[in-house]
Structures are given as C-alpha cells and as structure tokens.
Write a protein that binds this DNA or RNA. Structure first.
Lengths: 158, 158
DNA sequence: CCGAGATATTTCAAGCATAAAATTTCTGGC
DNA sequence: GCCAGAAATTTTATGCTTGAAATATCTCGG
C-alpha cells in the first residue's frame, strides 16, 4: 500500500483546519475581551470578572451559592471568593447566612449592585453589537447555533 | 409614528443575537482552554502562556524581540517578561544581547526548548482535533473563514 | 555634540486564576 | 448519640495579567 486510506487523509487534513479554527477563535475572543476590559475600566472602573459575577447574580434575584456561581462561570471556587469579597467591600453584593446549612451562604446583588449592573449591561450589549457588527446577521445565527451544539455535546459527555 | 423604522428593529434584534453569540464563544473557549491547561499540566508540567510563547518563538528560529512577542500574543509587555524569565530559568529559552541596540534583546528557543515544544505541539494538535471533533469539517472551514474575516476587519481599522 | 522626545524593557501594585490543603458543617449508618 | 466521610467554603502558594511608573538606550534637530 502506497498511500493511506482516504478516511485517514481526511482526518489529518481536518485536524489542521481545526487547529487553525481554534487559533482564530482564541485571537477573536482575546481581541474582544481586551476591548471590553478597557472600556469597563474606563467607563465603570470595573473588570470583566466582576461583570461576569454580577451578570450571573442578576439572573438569580434569590441569590446563588458560591459553588453554583463557580460552576456556572467555569472558574475555580477559590477564585470566586476573592471577586465576591471585593464586590461585598464595594457594597454591590451581599452574603446572607442561611438557616438550614451553616456551611453555605447565599450571595446576591444589593440594590446598588443591581442598579450598577444594569448600567454596565446596557453598555456591554452596545459594545458587543459594535465589535461583532462586522459579522452578518445570518452568519451570527449560524455560528451561534454551531457553538450551542458544541456546548450541548460537551455537557452531554461530561 | 407608532413603531420604529424597520432598520432599527433589525439592528436591535441582531444585537441580542450577537450578545448570545459572544457568550457562547466565551464559554466554548473557556471549556477548551480549561481542558488544554489541565492536560498541559498533567502531561508536560507546563502552562498555556508558556506554550503560547514557545509557539511564537518556534515560528521564528532567528528569535524575536520582547515587543514583537507581546504584540503577536496580544498580551502586555510586562507580562511577557515574567513568562520568558521562567522559560529561561528552565533552559527552554535564551536571551541574546544585540550588537547594535543595547535596549533590545533577541529571545529564541534553545535546542532543548525546540525539542520540548515539538512534543507539546504534537499533543496539542491531537487534543484540539479531539475537542473540536464534534464540529463537521465543512463547518470548521466556514467558521474559520468567518473569524479570519473578523480579524482582517479589526486589524484594518486598528 | 547635546538634550528632548521616542523606543525597548523591566519593575511594581493590584487583581485574577488554578490546584491543593485546611476548616467548618452536615449526613447517614451503626 | 457518634463518627466516618461528604460537602461548602476559605486559605495558601504560585503563576498569569494589566496599566503605569521607572530605567536605560537610541535618534535626531539644532
């Protein structure tokens, strides 16, 4: 046999293209994240991790446990502790002890935190619209669907 | 006038979809990055930033200036200093003073660094092929092209 | 020449990130 | 009731990240 079977050749060439896709995805997210970081700092004196935490809490007015927060954000539990500490110090977030389980504490946005987040979120949505404005609406939909599928597959297996 | 013009309505609905796309992109890269980080640590006792630096240097056997390195990787100049420091300490990278300009130093992979990187890169490519394997080859090509266009647009404007 | 700005790099302070260890509290079988 | 293990959280050590300040060197008009 002189050449590999077609399926193997296909797989190999596909590998290279997946690698290129990954590099481009990483570059795109880095560009956008860098821009968002800069603007959050400039306009709100805040950061992306703080925005992420507040965004998660905004969706859950009853509050969340630290563990749920770290799982949702895909970051380590120890990491969340520090970010929440600083948000508490700023008065945007409150920790509430619970009746039943003394290990856990429910974390939620304060009214000040909610108001502040709503301002940031509005700007954030405008920025994303601007930064991703070069991608056509049909492409956006297609791409989004693809990534949603990826996530479903991933979570199905893990 | 009771309702906004069509173009405005279109823009608004597109904004929401772009926001959703951004969130999904961020989640995807976080999942993949987390997996890569874990495997780099497990199999090579290394990290993603170190891999990125070595990858950049591998493409330039003549070496790179610190500034070019940080620009290429889209990270701050101060950041590169620390990563390179540790790579130098491990013997994978060397700083060479230059004749002409005493401010600059050319950074390049050592033979040990080259050999080590080639092992990592092979594993890295397999991992990406595995992790992004759920996305069909045609989709990969399409998606990749889209992101390439995004980057071209971005760099054209900045 | 020579000094004002430009350029390359490092240093610094603060915050983000992980994994692993330590602490505290809960739960279920005995 | 007790206690072994599980679970929620914080602490710790180390490394990554940024923006800004500090240092050193270069360039070039006068």
């Amino acid at each position: 046999m002189v050449s590999a079977p077609l399926s193997v050749i296909d797989a190999r060439s596909g590998d290279k293209e997946r690698l290129r896709l990954w590099i481009r995805m990483l570059r795109t997210t880095r560009i956008v994240e860098g821009e968002l970081r800069e603007r959050l700092k400039r306009d709100f004196d805040s950061t992306l991790p703080r925005f992420d935490v507040m965004s998660a809490l905004y969706r859950e007015p009853e509050g969340m446990l630290m563990t749920d927060l770290s799982r949702f954000l895909l970051v380590s539990n120890g990491n969340v502790t520090g970010i929440v500490d600083r948000l508490v110090a700023d008065g945007y977030v409150a920790r509430a002890k619970r009746e039943g389980d003394k290990r856990t504490s429910v974390v939620r946005l304060t009214p000040a935190g909610t108001a502040f987040f709503e301002k940031m979120a509005a700007a954030h949505e405008r920025w994303i619209a601007e930064l991703l404005g070069g991608i056509g609406t049909a492409e956006v939909r297609r791409l989004s669907e693809m990534l949603h599928l990826f996530r479903s597959n991933w979570e199905g297996e893990h």
